[in-house]
Amino acid sequence: MSRDIQGLAEVNRLIHEPARLMIFAILSAVESADFLYLHQETGLSRGNLSSHLSKLEEAGYLRIVKTYRGKIPLTVCQLTETGRKAFEDYRRQIKRFVENTFETGG
């Protein structure tokens, strides 16, 4: 069991952070979402959300496109293929950890 628990140390910390995990969860379900939607759903402040999105973009997990809807500027976020794969790997790791640790009565 200790090996399973120690396996958590190898988890992707960029994804594992709670605010970024919410962002990944939301974006994994869609093709793209704009900043307003992410702001509403995560409950993060605008500055905090911007900071997390920038980190994910730097890591290559996220693509941010600034565009317009009519005259209104719009910031659209989309997971890259790298980001989707990283999130799938993360989910598998967590699932394995939960199954091996908690569901065996550990």
């Binding site: 995990l21 919410m22 990944f24 969860a25 939301i26 994994s28 379900a29 869609v30 979402a33 759903e41 989910r91 967590i94 699932k95 939960v98």
Partner: peptide, 14 residues
Amino acid sequence: MKDNINYHVQKTRQ
């Protein structure tokens, strides 16, 4: 944690 992810995925679908 799994439930939290599923919650956000489901809410986004809705």
